[in-house]
């Protein structure tokens, strides 16, 4: 059985969303009255998958 304490704590807390992706998804949450924080995501190393793996290995983002 799952330890549900963290999930139940989410259900009882004010929802604060970090949005990684199109900003409009954050905008519609704000418009519904929920707090959101926008992450301007772009693929690290310009989308180069091999470079990405290397950066991951090095502990970068």
């Amino acid at each position: 059985m799952t330890d549900t304490s963290k999930i139940l704590s989410l259900f009882r807390s004010e929802l604060v969303v970090v949005n990684v992706g199109p900003k409009s998804f954050a905008d519609v949450l704000e418009k519904q009255g929920y707090k959101s924080l926008q992450v301007d995501w772009k693929p690290a190393a310009g989308g180069d998958k091999r470079m990405q793996e290397l950066l991951d290995y090095l502990g970068g983002y």
Partner: peptide, 14 residues
């Protein structure tokens, strides 16, 4: 973002 706002409890990933 989480460091800036420690109350952040859900991350929406697209």
């Amino acid at each position: 973002a989480k460091e800036h706002e420690p109350r952040a409890n859900l991350c929406q990933i697209s």
